[in-house]
Design a protein around this nucleic acid. Structure first.
Length: 863
RNA sequence: GCAGAGGUGCCGGAGCGGUCAAACGGGUUAGGCUUAGGACCUAAUGGCUUAGUGCCUUCGCAGGUUCGAAUCCUGUCCUCUGCACCA
């Protein structure tokens, strides 16, 4: 086994020492290639990381070799709960824990041979970075995009902190699929992502992202078109605004429903006979996650007036109404909305039919579910007999002109809750003063550093750190309290790609000019799990910072590529409990980086899931060895036309495949090329080949490049160009002819079941290509090549044979047939001549010493 | 329930109107090399067949379009992913 480990090390050190991947803004043709921000977990690099970085690195290297000024940076998203928890568990300070984790991570990443500009490295847990988190937080605050609000928020008991909407999946915490999120009423910091709902939606079609991700974001932002309608509260001047997408059903409203979390519920009910009952209801309603909770509600003792009919409708409070969507109150039309229908049935509320389908008549008494389809309005005053779509418009028009409502758009996207009740994150730069209220920390006082001497126990250790909490109010200088919450780590990753353009700027988060030069990210590679988290926040940030005048950019990521997952050999997700985890480092030790890189991308298209395979990595290792040994032993000379054809064709196809991240297909073509190589090859072609494999296997590429007499780095060489003149389909045809001839030789041999001592192959005298040589070469494994001799067939036949190749190219299915015989079997063959001719459509003439090929048929003779 | 993606040979996985019994890899079988094993190299690997430019059957299932379908259309079953009380 060649020790590729040493070769890996040699070149990794050399690249780093010569800083060959460091870039600046001098060269114009830029390309920003980025893999999603790494969270440096204490357990080090796993196969998924290795895959992600390999996919990105191959692309970055390809772009470098194509003359681009490639920014390919790396950094660490080092704040966060897992580090904090792991540190507590190991009884180490999170800072120490994280630092050693990063150190380890860097070491492991380097072993993959990644083309990073290491000089730009930063970590978010360093105050040099999070200072700018705080700075940007304050800028957003000044711009009115950060606010504090008391509301019902999601709390994960395992994380012991609140979560953003995006971090709750199916009622569970995104980190703990076994942990139900609890709703808590708390005052928290929010970022107004909702301000950009429409723009986030509008730009989606322009992005070169997987359709799936765009679709997920579209759903997440969730735009609905409808109307805002004002209901008067009975015995009051108050108005209740509701949002509906079905203004056409307004005549069918039989009740209104407040969300139980709506702050107005208690207030509305306080002077009614129901107040105790409602209070009891609100207090005792079991907390259940939304999907499995039953609709529970209660009449709150008040009535509202339908603006169109002036009818009184009762008001309820229920758990099925989402508190922070639209106004948190809905108008209920049980006849035409399934949820309202179920609720009305349960509480015996009247159901009023206002839309009849165009076919068939509905009857309220017989209805078993709401009718939500289209139809004609009935029982709807002057709007009756209108088509319901028309009625939507007409009713909105009417509401508008009578100031009872208006057309309205609603989005599902909520504002981003960024407070976290944890230690290992960026302190929120706010101060609470009894006199002045909320006071932002002045810019000059940044960064607010995380205190290192703290006591971990239950809850947020910052709350017990007096050193941290106690502060003078920046305004009135009296004693005040610091905010002890830290920022969601998604805040850190929302702008890190901007910082990479100017990683070590001490005066600003980044230089606008640099961002304008490098951004947008031209290729962003990572998993799809961030579709509705990081990828939404980062888009929001970009737009917000643009509006703050900090950059000129609408969208941060031009192209997004989702790589798949590497599963264990058993096809399941790699996990410790399953015991199917494969350690990339151990693999690197055994096979070297190039083999691992090649394995990871040769299984399947990189956007698909694939499984680890012990034989697969072996096979990649074999390919690497084969390439290495071939180039090492290749005789520099003239490349045969056959290999030239293959090489140029491969360059052409591999280039296209790389451009489209079809690494698996590119590697197949490279494999075929390697198999077609001959001992002799020109230096130039050898060099082209080494360049061709460089993005995949940069270490052996450098080693071989050096070996064939080059001093510079192949990683920085220009990508090979193919010569279309060298690509000749005729040669492929010849190749096929040879393969078929050999096949025939084997078949005849099988037939006569005797090992031949000598093979005579008759071919045309003036055959353009040296068929015999090629056949000899190919058959050297089976026979002593000296035993294959060329027999010349007469001119008349030869001319016909010469026609074969062009006609074959035109119609590859009509392959010329080669005829074989063997001395011992000669007689039987002779006897069967007629049959052969008939069955196999062969024109053969058998004589004692030779088999004469008839037009179009070369012949082979065993002696 | 709604919306997306997909079902290909022993396995992974290409192909996405004709050159397809279907790339490439793995596995298996046979042969070469070798003291032996490994590595390496070669061939075979849907069925039939006394050599295939042969026949038959295959690309989830059932139909259809076409001179021609793994590839296009319709229906159907299954798998995976995402969203699920957003009014």
């Amino acid at each position: 086994m060649t020790n590729f480990k040493l070769i890996d090390k040699k070149w990794q050190e050399s690249w780093e020492k010569k800083k060959i991947f460091q870039v600046n803004e001098l060269k114009k043709k830029k390309f920003y290639s980025l893999e999603m921000f790494a969270y440096p977990s204490g357990s080090g690099l796993h196969m998924g990381h290795a895959f992600n970085y390999t996919v990105g690195d191959i692309f970055a290297r390809f772009k470098i070799m194509n003359g681009f000024n490639v920014l390919h940076p790396v950094g660490y998203d080092s704040f966060g709960l897992p580090a904090e928890n792991a540190a507590i568990k190991a009884n180490i300070h999170p800072k120490k824990y994280t630092e050693s984790a990063i150190e380890n991570f860097v070491k492991q990443q380097k072993r993959l041979g990644l083309s990073y500009d290491w000089s730009r490295l930063f970590k978010t847990s360093s105050s040099e970075y999070y200072k700018w988190n705080q700075y940007l937080f304050l800028k957003l605050y000044e711009a009115g995009l950060v606010y504090r609000k008391k509301s019902c928020v999601n709390w994960c008991p395992k994380c012991e902190t609140v979560l953003a909407n995006e971090q709750v999946h199916d009622g569970k915490c995104w980190r703990h699929s076994d942990c139900d999120v609890v709703e808590k009423e708390l005052e928290q910091w929010f970022i107004k992502t909702s301000k950009y709902s429409q723009e986030l939606l509008d730009y989606l079609p322009k992005l070169q992202w997987p359709e799936r991700i765009k679709f997920m974001q579209e759903n997440w932002i969730g735009k609905s078109k409808g109307a805002k309608v004002k209901f008067k509260l009975k015995d009051s001047n108050e108005e209740i605004e509701v949002f509906t997408t079905r203004p056409d059903t307004l005549y069918g409203v039989t009740f209104l429903v407040y969300s139980i979390q709506h702050p107005k519920v208690r207030w509305l009910t306080k002077d009614t006979m129901q107040s105790d009952e409602v209070e009891y209801f609100l207090r005792n309603l079991p907390k259940q996650s939304p999907e499995d909770r039953d609709k529970e509600g209660i009449f709150i003792g008040r009535y509202a007036i339908n603006p169109l009919t002036n009818e009184e409708v009762p008001i309820y409070a229920s758990n099925f109404v989402v508190p922070d969507y639209a106004t948190g109150v809905v108008m209920a039309v049980p006849a035409h909305d399934q949820r309202d229908f179920e609720f009305a049935k349960k509480y015996g509320i009247p159901i009023k039919l206002v839309i009849q389908p165009k076919k068939g008549l509905l009857n309220v008494k017989e209805m078993e579910s709401a009718y939500t389809g289209p139809g004609i309005l009935v029982n709807s005053g002057k709007f009756s007999s209108l088509d319901n779509e028309t009625a939507k418009e007409e009713i909105i028009k009417f509401l508008k002109s009578n100031k009872l409502g208006k057309e309205e758009l609603q989005y599902r996207l909520r504002d981003w809750l960024v407070s976290r009740q944890r230690y290992w994150g960026t302190p929120i730069p706010m101060i609470y003063c009894e006199k002045c209220g909320i006071v932002p920390v002045p810019e000059k006082d940044l960064p607010i550093k995380l205190p290192e001497k703290i006591i971990f126990g239950k809850g947020n250790p910052l709350e017990t750190s007096n050193e941290f909490i106690q502060v003078r109010c920046p305004k009135c200088k009296s004693l005040a309290k610091r905010e002890t919450d830290t920022m969601d780590t998604f805040f850190d990753s929302s702008w890190y790609f901007l910082r990479f353009t100017d990683s070590h700027n001490k005066l600003k988060p980044f230089e606008t000019k640099k961002v304008d030069f490098w951004l947008p990210v031209d290729m962003y590679i990572g998993g799809s799990e961030h579709a509705c988290m990081h990828l939404i926040y980062a888009r929001f940030f970009t737009k917000a910072l643009r509006d703050l005048g900090m950059l000129e950019l609408d969208e941060p990521f031009k192209v997004l590529y989702n790589q798949g997952m590497i599963h264990g050999e058993d096809g399941f997700v790699m996990s410790k409990s399953r015991g199917n985890v494969v350690d990339p480092i151990k693999t690197l030790d055994k096979y070297g980086a190039d083999a691992l890189r090649i394995f990871l991308v040769s299984n399947a298209s990189p956007d698909k899931d694939s499984s680890w395979s012990a034989t697969g990595i072996e096979s990649s290792y074999k390919l690497v060895s084969k390439i290495y040994n071939y180039v090492k032993k290749a005789k520099v000379g003239i490349t045969s036309a056959r290999v030239e054809n293959k090489l140029n064709k491969t360059i052409k196809e591999v280039t296209e495949d790389l451009e489209n991240l079809r690494y698996n297909l590119a590697l197949i073509k490279i494999r075929e090329l390697v198999d077609s190589f001959e001992k002799q090859i020109s230096k130039k072609d050898l060099e082209s080949f080494v360049k061709l494999i460089c993005p995949f296997a940069p270490h052996i590429a450098e080693e071989l490049w050096n070996l064939i007499g080059n001093k510079k780095f192949v990683s920085l060489e220009t990508w090979p160009k193919f010569d279309s003149k060298k690509i000749n389909p005729e040669l492929d045809a010849i190749d096929e002819l040879i393969q078929n001839t050999i096949k025939d030789v084997y078949n005849i041999q099988k037939l006569v079941s005797i090992k031949p001592t000598k093979i005579v192959i008759s071919v045309a005298e003036h055959w353009k290509y040296n068929l015999i040589n090629d056949i000899k070469k190919e058959m050297k494994h089976t026979y002593d090549i000296s035993e294959i001799i060329k027999a010349v067939i007469d001119k008349e036949h030869a001319q016909d044979i010469a026609k074969l190749v062009p006609s074959f190219v035109k119609n590859p299915t009509k392959l010329p047939k080669l005829v074989l015989s063997q001395e011992k079997e000669f007689n039987s063959l002779k006897e069967n001549k007629k049959r052969f001719e008939k069955e196999f459509n062969l024109a053969i003439e058998i004589t004692k010493n030779n088999i004469k090929a008839m037009p179009g048929k070369p012949a082979i003779l065993f002696e």
